[in-house]
Design a protein around this nucleic acid. Structure first.
Lengths: 246, 246
DNA sequence: ATGCTAGTTTGGGTCAGACCTTTGGACCAG
DNA sequence: CTGGTCCAAAGGTCTGACCCAAACTAGCAT
């Protein structure tokens, strides 16, 4: 069994043979991320890239498609169209987190757990870094909660408020994560949701209380109140033994 | 300036005309996420999809490529190759966060801020949910820190330990985020890093102290100590005015 | 029988070229 | 000022061919 077929001691680590389209994609990605291509720059048209790279149009297109999926370029058709450089935003993080949550069947409870882990910190940072513009946005979202509205409108306003707090933290990473979590919560609650007037009133009061702390730059109070708010709404939503996956 | 050129009040939201390849990609993505195609299932070969969907191979390939970038399938060449269904893992979240951090020139300070926001919560959850296997992994990482080693080895071990804590929280979302942040910190520190024996000793002591709390299921202590550890290492690393981008 | 070697098959990767569709602009008619 | 017509640029799709990689298979030589 132990047949050593090699007569030479020369050893090579397994070579990777990258696909041509990946090579191009990587090349372009580097130039984008390094800032060599600032935002909005149009990449050369596909047929132009073909002659420059000596690759086929198929390959060039695949590379561009990859970058598009990664939200590094936006591709428009038609005259004056083409691939335009874009900096990746919080949305792309949100997309991939959404895939993770859906694909892995992550329990809503886990999502909530994550929010409880993160949002108080968001609130603390918001209290530290908020601008007056941030405060206005929070108030606007709250206004939409109290008044009127369908279930859909309520959920949207609630999400807006929480994302607003994250934005006020002026930390783009946390903001991206919160956008993702909010989306997930939104869709889940949409189906599970029982939302009556009492819930609205309670939510509104909690939000206002947190917002006041943020306005007063009181980090501790902001974090503490946000924690309580989340904990309370966790109790309100039924903790389902529905899909006890992991 | 206020020229209202429209005489009609009828408003339509912009219609999207999805690309054929996106239609296919979405279709397949749904079936994957819904669990209809369990992990490891081979999708039909490209040429087979062509006859089933009546699309060209180009289009089919583009769709598959999209799914590959989203980490929903793994594509292998050669006989018995093809596209195999894969559930998205923490890595894909890490990838997109990495793009965000690099592409937006997020300051190392912001990354650290995010860690300080998240890791104490990870530690608290770890204290709640850790298994004995988790504890062993933490010890292993710490062993690698103390002994020997190049700068590279130290950083890797440190990252492993922190990811280990996240893993012990048994919250896949937090784990994914931590993997991403760790990677980012790793590369940054790699260049900036000043790491002497004293730093190693201090790091080791802090880790052990957190690990003990996790072992004892003492949530408060775990969270508190992790917070202090991060705060301390933030001071150790120079707070650079290097790239004060935003 | 054993073990290497050369085909063979299945499937992805790349290429070249044609044609379709979308979009912006220019120009013209009412 | 409005609506039509046409053109050109650029992405989107299709066809069909060929090239490579991987896994199996059949011989052939020892």
């Amino acid at each position: 069994m132990a047949t050593e077929t090699s007569r030479s001691k020369i050893r090579l680590s397994p070579l990777d043979v990258p696909k041509a389209s990946d090579v191009l994609a990587n090349e372009l990605r580097e130039k984008i991320l390094s800032g060599e291509f600032p935002e909005g720059t149009p990449l050369p048209p596909e047929r132009e890239l073909v002659v420059q790279t000596r690759m086929s149009r198929t390959t060039v297109r695949e590379a561009l498609r990859v970058l598009e999926v990664q939200n590094l370029v936006r591709i428009k058709a038609g005259r004056a169209g083409g691939a335009f450089v874009q900096r990746p935003g919080q949305d792309s993080v949100a997309d991939s987190l959404e895939l993770l949550i859906r694909g892995r069947r992550i329990r809503p409870a886990s999502v909530h757990e994550t929010r409880e882990a993160i949002e108080p910190s968001c609130a603390r940072l918001a209290a530290l870094n908020r601008t007056t513009g941030d405060l206005q946005r929070l108030e606007a979202a709250d206004a939409a909660i109290g008044s009127s509205g369908t279930l859909e409108a309520f959920l949207q306003a609630d999400v807006d408020w929480h994302v607003g707090v994250a934005t006020a933290s002026h930390n783009e990473i946390l903001t991206g994560i919160m956008i993702a979590l909010s989306r997930a919560v939104h869709t889940v609650t949409h189906t599970t949701g029982l939302v009556n007037d009492e819930v609205r009133a309670i939510t509104l009061r909690a939000h206002r209380s947190v917002a006041r702390a943020i306005k007063d730059k009181d980090q501790d109070a902001a974090g503490r109140r946000m924690g309580r708010h989340l904990h309370a709404s966790a109790d309100a939503a039924p903790a389902p033994g529905d899909q006890p996956d992991r």
